[in-house]
């Protein structure tokens, strides 16, 4: 699906972020509900957000690689006010924001919100898994609690 989306359309569909030639693969992945994280094909290290070269070995041989999106909350906060976004209503309660240590992508965190859980249960150490909601008409990656 995302293959057919032009660069111009990609920029149009993500008006809230500056997409570059280095990060365009990552956001195209969203359109296919794939979380793509850069992995170096030469040294095997992962990094995020997408960079032009591998920060470890400087190789340009970077492969946007799908991760399954399971992980553990490393950072957590609850926004009582913040930037506006569709489906986010601060009047109804604080909006959780987390940075998640991704399983299988050593050292990389991905930041988003957690759905389906009261904010006070969104805590550091909680196991989570990836899910997708709709924002601004495109799929948006979020987390939900991972049941054992």
């Amino acid at each position: 699906m995302s293959e057919s989306v032009s660069d111009a359309e990609l920029v149009e569909r993500f008006p809230w972020v500056q997409i570059t030639h280095d990060s365009k693969f990552h956001f195209r992945g969203w359109l296919d509900k794939q979380l793509l994280i850069n992995r170096c094909a030469d040294c095997g290290n992962w990094h995020h957000p997408p960079k032009p070269v591998c920060p470890v070995c400087w190789s340009e041989n970077l492969v946007p690689t799908e991760v399954d999106g399971t992980g553990t909350i490393h950072l957590a906060m609850a926004l009582h006010q913040g930037a506006p976004a569709p489906g986010v209503d601060y009047a109804k309660g604080p909006h959780p924001v987390v940075a998640v240590d991704l399983d299988g992508a050593d050292g990389v965190r991905f930041s988003s919100t957690v759905i389906g859980l009261p904010p006070e249960e969104v805590v550091i150490g909680l196991p989570v898994e990836l899910d997708w909601v709709e924002r601004y008409g495109h799929p948006f990656p979020v987390f939900r609690k991972r049941e054992a």
Binding site: V17, L75, A76
Partner: peptide, 21 residues
Amino acid sequence: LKAPPMPESIDPSAAYTAWAQ
């Protein structure tokens, strides 16, 4: 940019709260 950043963007100021937690 044509729209504000998402609330989930951990910008420098929000990041201090995240690391405070």
